[in-house]
Design a protein around this nucleic acid. Sequence first.
DNA 1: CTCTATTGTGAATCTAGTTTCACAATAGAG
DNA 2: CTCTATTGTGAAACTAGATTCACAATAGAG
Lengths: 198, 198
Amino acid sequence: MAAQKLPTAVRQDQIVETAFQMLSENATRHLHVKDIAERLGMAPSALYRHFRNRDALMSAVLEHIRTKLYKNIEVVRQGSDDAGERLRELLSRHIRLIRERHGIPRILFSDELWGQNQERRRKMFRIVNGYLAEVEDIVREGQQNGQLRKEISPRAAARMFFGMVQPAALLWHMSGGDFDIEEHIALTWPLFAKLVIQ
Amino acid sequence: MAAQKLPTAVRQDQIVETAFQMLSENATRHLHVKDIAERLGMAPSALYRHFRNRDALMSAVLEHIRTKLYKNIEVVRQGSDDAGERLRELLSRHIRLIRERHGIPRILFSDELWGQNQERRRKMFRIVNGYLAEVEDIVREGQQNGQLRKEISPRAAARMFFGMVQPAALLWHMSGGDFDIEEHIALTWPLFAKLVIQ
DNA sequence: CTCTATTGTGAATCTAGTTTCACAATAGAG
DNA sequence: CTCTATTGTGAAACTAGATTCACAATAGAG
């Protein structure tokens, strides 16, 4: 039975979303064209109507992740005016992403997405740097309106923040889900808070 | 021209060491049996005299890394009696490992080493946990003899330490070597020190 | 020195996945 | 409603790498 015919624009979105999902679920290895096609109920060859090749598809997935990630920042900004709360909420959101098997932080650093592709790795680097810059901004604003301590450089604070999230994602992934993220946060957040928040 | 015949014990060491080297140099992807063999001047098929398959070889490499990593701890312990200095030295050693393209922290978390192998991933988790426990011990001792602040739990301090090193390794790797590790340490170490050291 | 267990080799095989292609169906512009 | 550009399909071709195997060479035990 042939799959329904859909315009490329729609299919591309479907494919990217599906690939992202599968990447999230599967702590395990490679994501095969065949498998993505299967889940969408179409033949592998059909994917090639919408992406030049597997590599192009993966790049699209990366782009998808980028927007998802940055939207988090935006939401957090709108949710509260207090920098401390913003950071705490951002952390929560990350933990949720990790736990719901939407291991964005893991995916982001997985070889799966990189492959040989030097250019894509660079792009990833830019994404992470951009994200760090956003955190930095939140901290800077918080300092300016007196919500956060002024002795810490925003840049350093952002790195510290990253240092809470990223190891958590990896340890959780490595352990196959046994790693106690709650404990990790309970351990590290107070220290971070002591440094950064009044 | 055939390669020299050597006893398995020797060859195994050679192979593991070579594989580790290549893994270190190559920021790029997969490590092929063929390539390892080539560098050793032997035929790919010869490797199978010394390892059941590629997977077994990779496990051996992981073991190799484990010993290298733990030796670092030991050296640092012998180098100084002061916990603060020990931690600083341990950090330096990690940075050196990262910079000398011996990106152990990166390798350790690369999918390359994990593959499908659930068991190996678990082993890796145990290695990292063991490492964290060692750092924890250094901190605990430091607290007991009054070198370090007592308000911070050793467990939390170890996580924080990990949070400095691991992101540095990844960012450095992603950037292809452009990431400024010195700056990263200059930013984060003082914060860590403020929390943990007197 | 000799003889064999061990190690090395090239060619062949296996496996697994991506990609291409000639042909089929159909959404939707007109 | 018709017709065509677009999308979907199965089979086949390609790649690429790991692994096996029958045979060759030799280190070193005796």
